[in-house]
Design a binder for these strands. Structure first.
Lengths: 206, 206
DNA sequence: GTCTATATTCCGATAGAC
DNA sequence: GTCTATCGGAATATAGAC
């Protein structure tokens, strides 16, 4: 029986290391995470970590690869059998929200990379670049066909990227600003609805 | 004659340290920056840094305080003699864009704090919180008066926060996605116009 | 596969000469 | 005010026993 969650709960030490490393790297960044931190979470000693991975950098790379692969899989599923116009956008938004909700570490890690170029910035950037181009292409096609109102497609996409990702990546700050948990199911529902409405106002010609 | 820029170009070593530290902390984070890095940029040795500041943490705190003070000053100026409805929003947006354009390090530093809680997360959060409440109050008042279309004000504000800040904080990634410099005057003009239009579609009842 | 012990390097911070 | 020299500690990584 396969495990749906990216984490493992028993047996495979390698998976336990990746799971602990993901949480640590997302929370404290690459420089702010030591092999001792990861080893403590797993419940083993530092050198035992390096029996499974050749270096700290290799662990980080493996964590990143797993996340980007998961994201790529989701995107492929989301753009299969595409709808036209606004319906497709709502579909992709819903898929993205669900993914981010279940992978908040992904968002924070990618954001850390985006800000400054972590150790493997180029890898992430070149992976995301074709997905971005594909989305821009879709938007421009639908605008030209009159199924979406005309806008600067790349800029609109970047605005959406920022609005959605920030809500997850900056959850600690937003918790203070709102005075309540922004990641509760109720709060996420409200945020989702508001973002959809914001872009529907700009894009939906109906 | 006073110096308008936050940086110094000669003489005052303390200011040179702050200037170098700001750039290093914004680019590589607190953990990713060593006193040697800063000292190298200034052109002195590591212990000389600690003649001007008692510790690395004190330098970070000083950098942060200067940025938050600058931001507070801008906000105070921007909300003086407020306009009504959409005009005021456009005014504040223009002021914010100009500030971020001239203080890209501010954006990246605040974002690092927002993601995980840097060393002084609480300070930043409690400083920004009343500004957030003030903005929410304005939006809700204007919506009630019919000068703005009704929305979930906090959520809309968070969406705007994310859309605008991400463009600056994630400039390294966006450079790859767009294939051109997102911080060029021309690109900033386009981005500014698109963000204004996005929110005008949602808010302006005219 | 996990451990103890250790090599090496870098860190922040201090002491004291000039 | 800046320097060299050094302390104490933590980091990654390796060697080798079990």
């Amino acid at each position: 029986m396969a495990q749906a969650s990216p984490s493992a709960s028993a047996g495979d030490t390698k998976a336990l290391i990746l799971d602990a490393a993901l949480r640590r790297f997302a929370e404290h960044g690459y420089d702010g995470t030591s092999l001792n931190d990861i080893a403590d979470d797993v419940g083993i000693r530092r050198p035992s970590i390096l029996h499974h991975f050749p270096s700290k950098e290799a662990i980080y790379r493996a964590v990143l690869k797993q996340l980007v692969d998961d994201w790529g899989t989701l995107v492929i599923k989301a753009v299969r059998d595409p709808e036209k116009g606004w319906d497709q956008i709502e579909r992709v938004l819903a898929a993205a929200f669900e993914f981010f909700e279940n992978n908040t570490e992904f968002v924070r890690l990618v954001r850390r990379e985006a800000i400054a170029g972590g150790p493997f910035f180029d890898e992430i950037a070149t992976t995301l670049q074709p997905l971005f181009d594909q989305a821009v292409g879709f938007l421009e096609r639908e605008m030209k066909a009159g199924r979406l109102r005309k806008h600067n497609a790349p800029q609109l996409l970047l605005a959406g990227y920022g609005a959605i990702l920030s809500y997850f990546s900056d959850a600690p700050l937003i918790t203070v600003l709102l005075g309540s948990d922004p990641l509760s199911p109720e709060a996420l529902r409200v945020h989702h609805r508001e973002v959809v409405e914001l872009f529907r106002n700009a894009l939906d010609p109906r």
